[in-house]
């Protein structure tokens, strides 16, 4: 007889409400208490894992200090870099526009695809 079969047999007997000897009832109650206590001590694995992680980081207040703060600083840094890059790009465009507007060659020399191709062909790869 395996465990399941034994279980269902016990269940059947219990369902039949067979009167138990008082000491047997007492022992059953104690066993039940013990089983419940053991179950309470072992939370779900995922919860346990999260709890351990949080504990190692120093609880909720430690969490904000060690995780949220560097995250906030990282974000601030990224925003700063992005803003700086935008500014650099705009400055570079302004620089080139000023050079184009004052260059010896007319704008058409830089706009004319034909000239660019002609130069490439003529340069024979030296361009």
């Amino acid at each position: 007889m395996n465990e399941d079969q034994f279980g269902s047999r016990v269940q059947h007997l219990l369902d039949e409400a067979i009167p138990l000897a008082p000491n047997a009832a007492e022992r059953l109650r104690a066993a039940r208490e013990q089983a419940l206590a053991r179950q309470r001590a072992a939370p779900a694995p995922a919860l346990q894992w999260a709890d351990n992680l949080l504990g190692s980081l120093g609880g909720w207040s430690g969490m904000s200090l060690r995780v949220l703060l560097p995250l906030a600083l990282l974000l601030a840094g990224l925003i700063g870099i992005y803003a700086w890059q935008q500014k650099q790009t705009l400055a570079e465009i302004e620089e080139i526009d000023a050079l184009l507007l004052t260059d010896e060659l007319p704008l058409d020399a830089y706009l004319d695809r034909g000239f660019q191709d002609w130069l490439k062909k003529r340069g024979g790869g030296e361009q």
Binding site: S61, S64, A72, L73, A76, G80
Partner: peptide
Amino acid sequence: CRALLGLGLWAMAGA
């Protein structure tokens, strides 16, 4: 912890 978090937020707002 609160002071540091505040500092972080301030830096972000500044950026």
